[in-house]
Nucleic acid binder design. Structure first.
Lengths: 346, 346
DNA sequence: TCCCGGGCTGACAACGTTGTCTAGGCTCTA
DNA sequence: TAGAGCCTAGACAACGTTGTCAGCCCGGGA
């Protein structure tokens, strides 16, 4: 009825652009841009007219176009193993907080521990032109990221080191933590100690196993290979492994569990047993203190890992493109709660 | 030394574009586009030349530009309360899986239970032109999303309903679940039952309280307002509340905990007590079965909430823009483990 | 009165990609 | 052998925004 000549004023699925706003406010395109971005040099009266048009049309700036023009997306990517794993929640959250403090958005995805999926995800994030990337590696060859890093994508690896490329890395002291945990069991009189861990191709698993062996060796103990079990961390596999090393003529009297999932399964197995078996687990978990007995753990600080990595990333973005890659290792902490202090049955 | 006339071949921070690839391969721009997108109509020989140029330059398509041209981003946003909360991990993961199945990327952010931050985040996601939005509301007024929804952003609310707008919503049966849980305690002989919940402005908290009151009323019991405590779910507040209702001349003999964080804190309080107090908590949590006694809970299926919401969202994106908003309510399930079956002390 | 300077404003190109359209070369058939 | 038809390839505009630059208008000083 009124002026229909104006064009596509917000047809369904057809969002208004600055051009529409400009037309409606009777100003130039660039003036709208100035108002939207809070730049100076616009008369209060003009600004008001533009604001009204924005309001009326429900305009929102298209950041894709903006990114295209400006080159930076103000977003970073996070590739982790599984968001549903309680270890990664706090880590992810910490990264997000740092990103937020730098005005960036976090895009994340789960690799499900699959190297191909990790690569697919990381490259998809690069295609969105994230400014930086935090990666918890699933694979062990990251040369596919080389062109991206060279092109300026700040990249930091967390929890596990990058494979076959130089890059910033933030790790926990997996070796030292495991060694301390096993030493703790040895101190309490154990000689036959089992180790149940994740697949050996995973760096953390390998390091923790190394720590186990080192502690045993330091104490002059020989490891019976029947005490060592590596593989997936699903409950069935872990249960079988635990039951195997707890039975037989020379059963282990203590178990070192290689990560939180393993620990929980082992707790369940031990709960069905009569005799006392000692347990120390890598990774702390909620309620560990409320179990009977409380579960002694090697705690790593997931939030600190995330925070450290993200801060490193933004330091690189804020100028320091050419600093040499660094490897940062965070200490672990033994939290004694009882399960590690059980002496061996005689 | 050789041909420098070619231009900016991948200067640091200056990524190669299709134009660069085209120049290097000696073909037209559009041909590169065809190869990159796997379109047909390119000679094997030409394709090989282009692939080599891509490889050599480390080219990767700029999705920002692509999005700008095509209109769809193949990404959806998730606004939730806190990624570090174990309840949201599986939910987020479920949304991600559905998104992945539809070839979309998930961008998520935490509102930290702050309505302003929720709005800021949701609108930032809209500015990135996500195709859809899954929101776990922190605020109770979502009219700010109206222009976005009208413009075609498929939006689904989860866990709590949208405020003051019509939109798809996926909820648990908070009222029914709480009523069942409290009825369970009443069945086991309790008459004085406490309720510790989240802030009443949060929909789930209000519904659960309503369920509590309904169960009490159904059983002909009067609620002493000293038994009801609502507020933040930090451990200090909850501990104080629990201790208050457990002391005095007429202490409660059972507690219904309004969510997982409350439950855990209450478990800790009860662990320090001598007398038996019954407990039922809303939300299941890992290891609930391993505590002594096992904790009886009302379980909701976080993954199903996320999956249902995401599927609804994509159904809307894949054509059904104009279906009327729907409210889907998922059933809860009482899992009896012992703590709810304790009879009242006499 | 004229000129100069400063403050607002808008025209225009560019960012990197994709859709459309046209040109050219080839094969196949009559 | 000529024409039709198909297949490959490239030129060009457009997506929505921002940086650059030039023009306009107004007030003040000479």
């Amino acid at each position: 009825m009124a002026e229909t000549a104006r064009g596509t004023e917000s047809r369904y699925g057809n969002r208004p652009t600055m051009k529409d706003v400009a037309a409606r406010a009777g100003v130039g395109l660039k003036t709208v841009s100035r108002v939207v971005n809070g730049e100076s040099g616009v008369t209060p009266d003009t600004e008001r007219r533009v604001q009204e048009a924005i309001e009326a049309l429900g305009f929102r700036r298209n950041d894709s176009a903006r990114v295209l023009r400006k080159g930076r997306t103000a977003s970073i990517g996070l590739v982790l193993e599984d968001l549903a794993d309680p270890f990664y929640g706090p880590l992810s959250r910490a990264v997000e907080e740092v990103a937020r403090a730098h005005g960036a958005l976090l895009i994340n995805g789960s690799s499900a521990e699959d190297p191909d999926r990790e690569q697919e995800l990381a490259l998809a994030l690069c295609a969105r032109r994230v400014d930086g990337l935090v990666v918890i590696p699933a694979g062990d060859d990251h040369r596919y990221l080389e062109p991206e890093i060279k092109a300026g994508v700040a990249t930091v690896f967390v929890d596990r080191p990058a494979g076959r490329i130089e890059a910033d890395t933030v790790l926990s002291d997996n070796f030292g933590g495991a060694r301390d945990g096993v030493a703790h069991l040895i101190e309490h009189g154990h000689r036959r100690i089992g180790f149940i861990g994740d697949q050996p191709r995973i760096h953390t698993a390998a390091e923790r196993l190394r720590g186990y062996r080192a502690a045993m060796e330091d104490a002059g103990l020989t490891v019976d290979e029947a005490w060592v079990s590596l593989g997936t961390t699903d409950a069935g596999r872990v249960r079988t492994a635990a039951e195997a090393m707890l039975s037989g003529p020379e059963p282990v009297t203590a178990i070192f569990a290689g990560n939180n999932r393993v620990t929980v399964t082992v707790v369940r197995v031990l709960a069905g047993l009569s005799g006392p078996v000692a347990l120390v687990g890598f990774d702390d978990f909620e309620l560990a203190d409320l179990l009977q007995p409380g579960v002694t753990v090697i705690a790593q600080d997931a939030a600190a890992l995330g925070r450290t990595a993200a801060e490193r990333l933004f330091r690189r973005l804020d100028g320091g493109q050419d600093v040499a890659p660094e490897r940062i290792e965070l200490a672990t902490r033994l939290i004694a709660r009882g399960s590690g202090e059980i002496g061996p049955a005689r």
